[in-house]
Design a protein around this nucleic acid. Sequence first.
DNA 1: ATGTGCATCCGTATTTATACGGATATAGAA
DNA 2: TTCTATATCCGTATAAATACGGATGCACAT
Lengths: 210, 210
Amino acid sequence: MKKIKIIIADDHELFRNGLKELLKKYNDIDIVDCVGDGEAFLEIIKSTKSIDIVLLDITMPKMDGFEVLNQIKSLNTNIKPIIISMHDDGIYIAKCAKNGAYSYLLKNTDQDELIKVIRIVSEGKKYFSPKISEKMINYMSEQTISENILSKKEQEVLELISKGLTTKEIASKLFVSSRTIETHRANIIKKLEVKNTAELIKKATKINLI
Amino acid sequence: MKKIKIIIADDHELFRNGLKELLKKYNDIDIVDCVGDGEAFLEIIKSTKSIDIVLLDITMPKMDGFEVLNQIKSLNTNIKPIIISMHDDGIYIAKCAKNGAYSYLLKNTDQDELIKVIRIVSEGKKYFSPKISEKMINYMSEQTISENILSKKEQEVLELISKGLTTKEIASKLFVSSRTIETHRANIIKKLEVKNTAELIKKATKINLI
DNA sequence: ATGTGCATCCGTATTTATACGGATATAGAA
DNA sequence: TTCTATATCCGTATAAATACGGATGCACAT
């Protein structure tokens, strides 16, 4: 039988070793290595191939979990990261999900759940528990409060700006003078308290206007 | 005992009525009304207060589910929408989550699951099943493939552009000529195949570069 | 050793965006 | 009704971005 090869990356030694002991008992699991920071982890996976899973903490010295997730993606390995974190903030969860985590567990997760998730993930499936999903979704939906700041026309103009149209193009598309669009642009920029178009689009995206 | 007041909004009459019959059997549930499109639904909730839950389809004539979700948010009611859809695409799920859905069920969900979710949501909690979460998370992480397109410097410049700095400001911040930054800008725009800064920032945000 | 990608630099011309400081008509809210 | 927000329009001036078409030195991989 093929064992699931795992690396543990966590800066708390006690936790790391405890976890190792805990997982030792399972026949289908093989703890290949334990490291205390993100850089050390990356070193290892450069030499050691065929790792299945990394149990990854977010807050680590030198290179944090988010960075590690990014690196894993760009390295084109098939290591599947499971985040084990003490934070249950929606933003953390969403960020990990976005960056390719296969699961997100809290440090107070019980043993059975952990084993269950390891086995699910080892088959290439992602698993996020309903509680974790709820947190993330709450966060995602909160990000959409700020509507109604812009008038309908302004919203329309913003939409077209974001599509790459110039003032002139927008003007002819909406059958108005380009002066009008210029004014709209100026007002939009003022309302969102930004300096220029680049910052505008960034902010508008952030608060979900486009 | 207080019943959970529900409205069903779905354009398929058979499904709508079937669902109604099905839910009739439960003592703690009260189907207040059934409608076939989004506009009709909005009409009803304007007059009828104290609805707890709407079972909402996405594809509907006149006004689709996404629009309805948006309206519900801006109307400041405490109706909790549960999406019942036949699509299990990640993008649909993510969009609903973002727009304030309390749950997302597929039309082939079994009865027990539906009742369970209705009861959970009626208490104000959100619930997304692991399968649905998986779909959504897969979608979210796919949105983040394209790294490594830009060089480090280009990435750095992009970051500063998105913060609203002008070419000149970036140049002096990075101790290089503004010509250099101009070239970087041009190259970034070319690489991401966009027309101008506005579109650039939008795309960069979308593919998670900033 | 040779090539490829990258960071860096330069000039010129045109197009856009931004910053001023106005004005009017209309519709909806107070 | 009066106030307020909105959409629309106008001019002038400067700042910035974009489009051309180049060039060099350096590092890294083949």
